[in-house]
Simulated assay, not measured.
Amino acid sequence: MSQPPRDLFAQASGAIRLTDSQRLDWLRLARSENVGPRTFRDLLNFYGGAASALEALPQLAARGGKANIRVASRADAEREMALAMRAGVKLVALGEPDYPDLLRRIASPPPIIGIKGDLSVLNRPMIGIVGSRNASIPGLKMAALLARGLGDLGYITVSGLARGIDAAAHQASLSTGTIAVLAGGQDRIYPAENEPLLARILETGIAISEMPMGHDPRAKDFPRRNRLIAGLGLGVVVVEAADKSGSLITARMALDENREVFAVPGSPLDPRAAGTNRLIKAGATLVTEATDVVEVLQPLLERAPDTGGASEEDREAIDLDGPGEDARSRIVSLLGPVPAELDDIVRSSGLTVATVRVVLLELDLAGRLIRDPAGRVSLA
């Protein structure tokens, strides 16, 4: 069976409106084993809908080398939807009207996000503010000064509800609106000490999470949260960051998504400023007040948005019944522990883009593939 896929997500935000039944299928697919954001997107584009993709999961995983893949049950999805409804959380699918437009444009947007609070803040420009958990007093004051100033200039601040800089930024922008991006489920707040702050945030702003209700945040969930902070706004301001800190990861993710990166300079004697000073040396915009940020972002707001579009490879016919074993073996033999670009795999294998993409999808579902933030792949 062959069909030319179309990129269902390469269209203007708000073009997709799911029925209750479709939302349940999307939730099941998103919660199934080894289905990350990019795999979810490929599955929907290949099969045209979540229901058909769910039916195909076992066969695809088996062809990739995994005999039994866990497919989320209808009962589990219904239970999550009920929990979300009781908690006042709206489950929004990628491309629906309430899905943040800039977040939709990142390389791996979550298929479904839970949003709680005043959704009107999503209609205003956003800017991330991140920094050290173990922040200095000057750092906390600077975060508050920037957040308050940006809020007064019409911007919504985005941060991760962590201790230190995040909490200071949220606190200072309560009156103008702020967005807390959670690493766990909407009912699993970390750190617990910031639950009262979150309650105040929800009065004028929102909390966003891509994780299921009841999900306790783990170490690997924080980088996933950081990509949402980077993706929601036009840019990210780093107030304090030591070398190898999570804030620098957020800055790198922002750069990967062609967003602006700003940094507050600090004393060379303070290790909490080592990361921010290095960002400035690397070309980040030096910030000492809110207007420094706005002067860079204002021209971006005046540009016409890019609505995207399907590439030539998206229009190639796809053999959903599976490539031959020879093609699959050829692709696997080219992969290794070093990440490879899709174009290089196509060139070296002599196969079509469509064939390579299906094999990579099979390996991904079987848990044999690793995708890096740049979209390159390697064998697990």
Rank of each mutant, 00 (worst) to 15 (best):
P265W: 06
T291Y: 02
P323H: 12
A304L: 13
V293K: 04
T276W: 03
V238E: 14
V264F: 02
V293M: 07
T291W: 02
L335G: 14
G266P: 05
A310V: 05
L297W: 00
L335P: 12
L248T: 09
L297F: 00
P265T: 06
R259P: 09
E316R: 12
N258G: 05
A273D: 03
R259C: 11
E341H: 13
T276I: 04
E341K: 14
L232H: 01
V238R: 15
G266W: 03
V294S: 12
I249K: 11
L234I: 04
E289H: 07
R252W: 03
L297S: 00
A230C: 04
A317M: 08
V264P: 01
G324C: 10
P271A: 06
T288G: 06
A263T: 06
E313D: 13
R315N: 12
T288I: 07
L335V: 11
V287E: 12
A310C: 10
E240Q: 13
G336P: 06
T288W: 07
E257N: 09
V264W: 02
I331G: 10
Q298W: 02
E341T: 05
P268S: 05
V236W: 00
D326S: 15
E240T: 03
E295Y: 00
L248P: 07
A282V: 00
G246Q: 03
A340V: 11
T285Y: 11
P323D: 09
L248M: 14
T285K: 14
A274R: 12
L248F: 09
V294T: 15
P299F: 07
T250Y: 11
V261E: 07
V296R: 15
M253C: 00
D243N: 10
G275R: 05
V239N: 10
D314K: 01
R224W: 08
V239W: 07
L232T: 01
S247C: 03
A340D: 01
Q298F: 01
G266F: 03
I249C: 11
T288S: 12
R315W: 08
D314I: 00
E295T: 11
L255G: 14
G235V: 07
T307V: 14
A340P: 00
R330T: 15
R330H: 15
T276A: 08
A340F: 00
I249W: 10
G233E: 00
R227S: 13
D314Y: 01
Q298G: 00
E260N: 02
G308D: 05
L234N: 05
A282R: 08
L269W: 03
A304N: 10
D256R: 14
P265E: 06
V332R: 15
R330Y: 02
G246C: 05
R252V: 01
P265F: 08
S329K: 15
E295C: 00
G283M: 04
G322S: 04
R272S: 15
R315V: 09
D292F: 03
A274L: 04
A327Y: 06
D314Q: 10
P268I: 12
I249M: 14
S247Q: 02
G336L: 07
A230T: 02
V338R: 09
V261C: 11
E289Y: 01
V239I: 12
M253D: 08
E316C: 10
L269T: 06
E316I: 06
G233Y: 01
V338C: 00
P265Y: 08
R303L: 15
A304M: 10
A290L: 02
S311K: 15
D319G: 06
S245Y: 08
D270R: 09
